[in-house]
Amino acid sequence: MSRAFRRSALIGAGLSAVLATGTILVACGTGSDDGRADLSIVGSYVPVPALPGGMGAGYFTVRNDGGAADRLVAVTSPDAGSVTMHTSGESTMTAVDSLQVPAHGALELARGGHHLMIMGWQKPPAVGDELELDLTFAKSGTITVTVPVKPLTYRPGS
């Protein structure tokens, strides 16, 4: 078996594993305290909207293993007309222009807190579909993630 064939087989197997888990890891730095952000996106999912093609929400965690903070400043998707960032309080939901990703910390988008609102679907999403999100950070640029559509009642870790 040639070295090139083995390498392409390993790459293909790794890509299949990543797509199957719905977890995308993207490194943007060295993980050291060199003053750069080192971001990865984990635990992403979109619950299927309650109404077909209706407004949906998006959740994930941005981990930053680097020595510099960053900010999520925009989210777009070729699969939806509009994606906006929000934060929820006790009885309100407010659109925000950016979300902080602390150095050596994480930004969590979860039910009842920071989250995405997704509108104008290109086609009504169904459980098992995938949604592409382009996450734009102030310092780290754009990271594209593929997010699985889960049942409306899905709760990670349960």
Rank of each mutant, 00 (worst) to 15 (best):
S88I: 02
T76M: 13
M55V: 15
P78V: 12
G67W: 00
A74R: 06
G54P: 14
L72K: 03
T61L: 04
H86W: 14
F60H: 08
S88T: 15
T76Y: 15
G81Q: 05
M55H: 13
S88D: 09
D79H: 14
T61M: 05
T87G: 13
M55E: 15
V83Q: 00
G67P: 09
A50M: 01
N64C: 11
D65P: 01
V62F: 06
S88K: 03
F60Y: 11
G58K: 06
G54S: 14
A50T: 04
P78H: 09
G66E: 03
G54N: 15
L72D: 12
P47N: 02
L51N: 14
A69Q: 05
T84I: 02
T76E: 15
G81Y: 07
L51V: 14
G56A: 15
P49W: 11
D79F: 07
T76I: 13
G67V: 02
P52Q: 14
A69F: 03
L51C: 09
A80V: 06
V46Q: 14
A50F: 02
A50R: 12
A69E: 10
A80C: 12
G53M: 00
M85G: 07
D65F: 08
G56Y: 11
V48S: 04
V73N: 03
S82W: 05
V73A: 08
R71W: 08
V73E: 04
A80T: 07
T61N: 05
V62I: 11
T61Q: 08
A68L: 12
G81M: 07
N64Y: 13
S77Q: 03
G58C: 09
P49N: 09
S77F: 00
G54R: 12
H86K: 13
M55W: 07
V83I: 04
D65Y: 10
A74K: 04
P49F: 11
D70F: 14
G66Y: 07
M55S: 14
A68P: 07
G56T: 10
F60N: 04
V75E: 06
Y59F: 09
S77E: 01
T84L: 02
R63M: 11
N64M: 11
A69M: 05
V75T: 07
G81L: 10
G66Q: 08
A68V: 13
Y59N: 00
A80K: 06
D70N: 15
P47C: 02
H86T: 15
M55F: 04
M85T: 15
T87I: 08
D79Y: 07
Y59Q: 00
A57G: 09
S88E: 11
P47G: 01
G58D: 02
P47M: 03
T87K: 05
T84P: 02
T84C: 02
M85H: 03
A80H: 12
N64I: 13
A50W: 01
S82N: 11
T76F: 15
S82H: 12
G58T: 05
A68F: 07
M55K: 14
Y59A: 00
A57W: 04
T87Q: 08
V73R: 02
A69T: 02
S77M: 02
G81N: 09
N64G: 11
A68S: 13
P78I: 13
V75F: 07
D70V: 13
M85F: 08
P78A: 09
L72N: 09
Y45G: 01
R63P: 00
L72R: 01
P47T: 11
S82F: 05
H86S: 15
Y59E: 00
G66N: 04
R63T: 10
T87M: 11
T76H: 10
A57I: 07
